[in-house]
Every structure is written in C-alpha cells, then in structure tokens.
C-alpha cells in the first residue's frame, strides 16, 4: 500500500508498504530517517519514540497505515521543532535558543555547526550519552515532558521518562541533563 504523511514538516510518501510494517520501519528503511531506534519492537524501551500529531508514542507500535495524513516529528527534526516552538512562544520575536547553545566543535565527528535543541545540547553537556542508542527516544520524550512541565521535580522526571530504557548510564547523567535543560529554559525565558 501507499502511505502519505508529514515528517518533520515535510510531506513524505512511502510506496509498496507491507500492511504489517510499523511506522518505525517506514521511517528507518523507506524514508532514510534511521534516528528512531529499533531496540525492542514491543513498546518496552522507548527508543523509537516519536511525536504523532504532537503526542509521544512508540513508533514500533503504530501501524504504517495508521499515519496516513498525520504529522510525525522524529529526533532528526527535534532541533527545528524546538526552534519553531521557541519562536512561537515569544510572539514572533526570533529567540534563537538553539543557536545560543550550539555545539562547540572540537573533534572530527562532532558535526560542527549543527544547530541543536536545548535538550540535545544538555544531553551532550551533562554526559548523558554513552552508546547513544536510547538517546533519540529519550530526547523526544524529555523534550515533550519539558514542554508540558517546564519545572519538573526529580520524581516528575523519573515518571516522565519511565518508558525509556537506558542500559549504559544508570540514568544519573540523564537526570542531570533534563535538570540542566529545564534550568537553561527558565533562565532563557
């Protein structure tokens, strides 16, 4: 079957989709967007978290056909998404938060000059990334949590991220990263 939907603001079309394919498979294997990760394919790890019409969901559990005509944001579009949100919230005054915290490139693989969202930068700065496989899903989930709850308590953060497994960090640096992003967000406003 054919599926048309919007990903990170761009209309996309996927052809010859097998009816049992998930949104995750279509993103990764058909649209060249492998940022969302396939760690369990049973909704237990959150590595494939994307926003479907704004709502964080496990893309491995959304049938491809269910996204027809809908709007998806993945980790690849998170920086733009956050930038637009920041612009929108200041009534048209461009508040380029993402740029302010852009990566300071040091080494060859840093992806110098890449604009990042506050939560992405906080994950780098706090040391919340190790193998990084859980990172895309955590970023999408954490970004949405901070959108709803800009000043979360530690218990709020833990509950908000309880659907995202990480095997490397012991979660402490992830806690640090979310606290850091929240603090920077409240300073920035």
């Amino acid at each position: 079957m054919r599926v048309n939907f919007t990903v990170n603001g761009r209309p996309q079309e996927a052809d010859d989709v097998w009816e049992g394919e998930s949104l995750l498979y279509v993103l990764r294997e058909r649209l060249g967007l492998p940022g969302s990760k396939n760690a369990c394919e049973q909704g237990e790890c959150g590595s494939c978290t994307v926003r479907l019409d704004g709502v964080p969901v496990c893309s491995c559990l959304v049938a491809a056909g269910q996204v027809e005509g809908r709007d998806v944001v993945t980790v690849e579009g998170l920086a733009d998404f956050a930038k637009q949100r920041a612009c929108g919230s200041t009534c048209g005054t461009p508040l380029d938060e993402a740029k302010q915290w852009a990566a300071k490139g040091q080494d060859s693989q840093t992806g110098e000059g890449t604009e990042l969202s506050p939560i992405q930068q906080a994950f780098i700065d706090a040391g919340a990334v190790q193998c990084g496989f859980c990172t895309p899903g955590l970023l999408v989930a954490a970004d949405e949590m901070l959108e709803r709850n800009p000043n979360p308590t530690d218990a709020d953060i833990r509950e908000g991220l309880s659907g995202n497994l990480c095997r490397c960090t012991g979660y402490e640096k992830i806690m640090d990263a979310v606290r850091l992003a929240a603090a920077r967000q409240s300073e920035g406003v």
Binding site: G43, P56, V57, C58, L61, E159, S162, G163, N164
Partner: peptide, 9 residues
C-alpha cells in the same frame, strides 16, 4: 499501564 508512550496510545 506500561509507560507514558503506551498510555498515550
């Protein structure tokens, strides 16, 4: 129920 992502769906 499960996780926030699952409760959303």
């Amino acid at each position: 129920v499960a996780s926030p992502q699952i409760r959303n769906r």
